[in-house]
């Protein structure tokens, strides 16, 4: 599997990652190499195997519907880059 520079730009956009234009070629090489490694998976026919998403065959535990959390806004917002009047702030979003 070989990627093109356009693929890198598209994925980088999906992942909201800024990538320098002059680094794109390196990413093309590195990611293509990784994908060739990954393509080894196709050596095996696994079509009849049920996918395993979690190593334990456990099922979800459920918690009681109770309020256990208290307001910790001040503590949480101390580490935020931009807050005002209790809001987190980002550059204006136009809808």
């Amino acid at each position: 599997m070989t990627l093109k520079s356009e693929d890198i730009r598209n994925i980088a956009h999906l992942a909201r990652l800024h990538i320098d234009e002059d680094a794109i070629d390196d990413y093309v090489d590195d990611l293509s190499n990784i994908l060739s490694l990954v393509d080894q998976m196709n050596q095996v026919d696994s079509s009849s195997v049920a996918p395993l998403s979690n190593p334990l065959d456990a099922t979800q535990r459920l918690r009681a519907d109770e309020v256990t959390e208290t307001n910790q806004r001040d503590k949480f917002q101390q580490i935020a880059p931009d807050v005002a009047d209790g809001f987190y702030r980002v550059p204006k979003v136009i809808e």
Binding site: L3, I11, A15, L17, I19, D30, I34, L35
Partner: peptide, 9 residues
């Protein structure tokens, strides 16, 4: 970054 990109892909 490499891993995020591959994973996204």
């Amino acid at each position: 970054k490499r891993r995020i990109l591959i994973g996204t892909y």
